[in-house]
Write a protein that binds this DNA or RNA. Structure first.
Lengths: 125, 125
DNA sequence: TATAATAACAGTAACAATTATCATTATTGA
DNA sequence: TCAATAATGATAATTGTTACTGTTATTATA
């Protein structure tokens, strides 16, 4: 079902997600919001994050065994810290031509691509 | 604990994984092997796949909410079919310099990278 | 080759992340 | 204002994975 009506919970989820620059999991977001909306439900957070990422309003990134969410829906790359498992933005310019170039190496049609760097963040070094 | 002893189960897992060119999940591998080894345990498959990927003998790829395994441990790229959720090899040449180049855009140290193309495979088109 | 140490096993329980269900509440258009 | 229904909170169910436990298989050494 597509997003149609408004709700305080949904607005709060979007606002929280866009105003922080880490890439929280549903539960991390839930815990942060729970303080301001004590009877927020974890299911509501999951439901909204999935609807919004289906919509293309936000981005879902599945790495390290959990789904992380990113308020920035434009394609960009990430780094996963292998120590703390946090996900960071990598502002490396997007390889605009890689999908076209890769076409010859694939049996099918490419619609998008993701690059994930694995490493250790400064905090963990 | 590192891999030391041999076992029929482990050998069968490696053989099956290396002789097929899709990238099965633990369960897919389990179901295929179960036919030849009826009392194989799913836990054994998981345990071995994790030990072998810790060793660097095989590769674990976490995409689409599940872990897929690849008998080819050399870095190479993949395509995830958004229809059937199967994972395919992409023989696109590895971008040897991208980690060095990305260094300036990251707060930390990069140790590896993955590229995943998302698309629709020929079978699903 | 027998044996002792222990890695690996099967089976199952536990776990964490996510999704589905359902009765109630909030939003929206008429 | 009110009816239709999307969205919610609470909780149950599901899924993918890991941990536990008693038993079996492998291996190095005697």
């Amino acid at each position: 079902m597509a997003v149609t009506k408004h709700s305080k919970q949904r607005d709060a989820i979007i606002e929280e997600l866009c105003h922080r620059h880490d890439h929280p999991t549903a539960e991390e977001l839930y815990l942060a919001l729970k303080m301001k909306m004590p009877n927020l439900s974890l299911g509501t957070v999951y439901r909204n994050l999935n609807m919004l990422s289906d919509d293309g309003t936000i981005q879902k990134i599945s790495v390290g065994g959990a789904d992380h969410f990113d308020g920035n829906a434009d394609n960009h790359y990430h780094m996963l810290c292998s120590e703390c498992k946090r996900l960071y933005d990598v502002t490396y310019p997007v390889l605009e031509d890689i999908e076209k170039k890769a076409h010859d190496f694939v049996d099918g049609r490419i619609t998008s691509h993701t690059i994930t760097f694995i490493g250790v963040c400064n905090g963990c070094l």
